[in-house]
Amino acid sequence: MKWRKLLALGMAAVMTAAFVSGCGSDKAKDGSSSAGKKIVVGLDDNFPPMGFKDENNEIVGFDIDLAKEASKRLGREVEFKAIDWSSKEAELKSGRVDILWNGLDITEKRKENMLFSDPYMDNRQIIFVKKGTTGITDEKSLAGKVVGTQSAGTAEEYMDKSEFFKKDVKEVKKYSDYVSAFMDLENGRIDAVVGDEITGRYYMSKHADSIEAVDSVVGEVSEFGIAFSKDNQQLRDEVQKVLNEMKADGTIAKISEKWFGKDITKK
């Protein structure tokens, strides 16, 4: 009788293994090895209106709403992880985050180390000053001034390469986030902020009595994209597919209207 019990146990083990294997196959019916896996989005959580903490300490914003809707359509949970933005490429390469989705400019230098989605929004770098300021009308009028910007951003990259900012501007002060830069501008510690138009105009809408924009582009107009690690082409393509669907059905336009008052995304 003992051998019969052993045979029965062996057959049960084989059947269990086959059942587990079958379940695994069902999970991958869509052809995606990452089906159901949580997506970790890395961001600077002090970058309004793209991604920031509200009064309830919840991460909200334009890019947050896009990522939530895209993840929902992919049938995957999403986690938003605040990171040191100056170390964003290392965070992505190490796998600590799956995506950088936070008003990230597409540049040739960044393309060397990251995959990008199609651009979904234009981004200009413009000048912001304290309300009532005179004499600052364009880039060249910043000569002799103290100018603030955010570290590891497109404006900083441009100014670091510019002979004008190196030689003629009195000082370029770099901040961990734009909010800190604008607070120093309001308090008279710096003369101007050069930075993302989207962020600046959002901040300006909340501080209309103290900040105004100088509608003059500094550097080249760039485009926002979503970044993925070089070896994650599959996730990039999955996200791009649902973004195309969201654009076609008007979802992206509605999210833009919620945060900016109109659709300012790329058509």
Rank of each mutant, 00 (worst) to 15 (best):
G135F: 13
G144D: 08
F62D: 01
F128P: 03
L100M: 14
S34D: 01
K111E: 15
S86M: 07
N113W: 14
L115N: 09
D84P: 00
E157G: 10
G75D: 11
I126A: 07
V147F: 01
S141D: 06
L100W: 07
K109M: 07
N123V: 14
N57C: 04
G61Q: 07
D44P: 00
T133M: 06
V147S: 04
A82M: 09
E55G: 02
E112F: 12
G144H: 14
A70T: 05
G75V: 05
V97K: 05
E91N: 01
D122W: 02
E77L: 13
T134N: 01
T137S: 10
A143R: 15
L92N: 02
D65I: 04
S87D: 15
A70F: 03
K130G: 11
A152Y: 09
V60D: 05
D138L: 14
V147T: 03
F62W: 11
K145A: 06
I127A: 00
V60I: 13
R124N: 02
Q150F: 02
E89A: 02
E139W: 02
D118A: 11
D105Y: 14
S141Y: 04
E77I: 02
M121K: 12
F47E: 09
L100V: 06
L92R: 04
F128C: 03
F52C: 07
S141N: 11
M121V: 07
A82Y: 13
R96L: 00
D84L: 02
V40L: 13
A67C: 06
V97A: 06
L115R: 15
K130P: 00
I39Q: 03
A152C: 08
D65W: 06
F116T: 08
I136P: 01
W85S: 05
A90L: 06
D45V: 05
F52G: 01
G95P: 07
G42K: 08
V97F: 08
E58R: 14
I126Y: 03
A82R: 14
L100I: 15
K145Q: 13
V146G: 04
G75N: 12
E108K: 15
I106M: 13
I136G: 05
G148L: 02
K38G: 02
G135P: 06
L43H: 11
I99Y: 03
D105K: 11
K93R: 13
K38L: 04
N113M: 11
I83W: 01
K68E: 08
R96Y: 10
R124Q: 01
D54R: 09
W85V: 01
K88N: 12
F62M: 13
E108G: 09
F116Q: 07
D105N: 15
D44S: 07
W101H: 09
N113K: 14
G148N: 01
E139K: 09
K81C: 00
T149C: 09
G103M: 10
A90E: 15
K93G: 06
G95R: 05
A82K: 15
S71Y: 03
